[in-house]
Simulated scan of single mutants.
Amino acid sequence: MKYLEDMVVGTKAAFGRYEVTREEVVDFAAKYDPQPFHLDDEAAAKTHFGRLSASGWHTCAMTMRMLVENLTGENHAGLGSPGLDGLRWLKPVYPGDTLRCESELKEVRPSRSRPEMGSIHSELTVFNQHDEPVLRMNSIGLMATRPKE
């Protein structure tokens, strides 16, 4: 198990693989972001996107899936997240794209008021199959400290 004390500032990681499907783009948009350029090919063709594109929030959800799979695989003592800073959608995500993540750990901060936990701050970038960045954010994760023997 990886605890807060095991985290090293400057650590970089590359992980995830998510294939974006048209069906998923339309289903997500119909439920959560029903703008025409996420739902309809003709409407999307008339916009600056040029074709059907995923909602930025859908891109966030796909990113979250890759993050959780990575953390679970590495057996982190994660405790959720209080949020994120600086979310930017840099480029549209389209059906047929394949996404992946790269992160760099920027800060490890023990809690002053709760000694059993702390926070980790990472810069996360999501790339498409052309190595173009499509999303960037600064994520904050809560993590348990090593249990005292």
Results as ranks from 00 to 15, higher is better:
V26A: 02
V26K: 02
D27I: 04
D27W: 04
A29S: 09
A29C: 06
A30R: 12
K31C: 06
D33Q: 08
D33F: 08
F37N: 01
F37E: 02
H38Y: 03
H38N: 04
L39G: 00
D41H: 05
E42R: 07
E42F: 03
E42N: 07
A44R: 00
A44P: 00
A45N: 11
T47A: 07
H48N: 10
H48S: 10
F49W: 04
G50M: 02
R51E: 06
S53T: 14
A54E: 07
A54R: 03
A54K: 03
G56T: 01
G56D: 03
T59L: 01
T59F: 01
T59G: 03
C60V: 07
C60T: 07
A61H: 05
M64H: 10
R65I: 08
M66F: 09
L67F: 03
V68F: 11
E69N: 13
E69S: 08
E69G: 11
L71M: 13
T72P: 15
G73C: 11
G73S: 13
E74K: 14
N75R: 15
L79G: 15
G83P: 11
L84I: 12
D85Q: 10
R88L: 07
K91L: 15
K91H: 15
K91R: 15
V93R: 10
V93S: 13
V93A: 14
Y94W: 05
P95Y: 01
P95I: 04
G96D: 07
G96H: 02
D97M: 12
D97I: 12
T98W: 10
R100H: 15
R100M: 09
E104Q: 06
E104T: 08
K106F: 00
E107G: 07
V108T: 03
V108W: 03
R109W: 13
P110C: 00
P110L: 01
S111Q: 11
R112C: 00
E116F: 02
E116C: 00
G118T: 05
I120R: 07
I120S: 07
E123K: 14
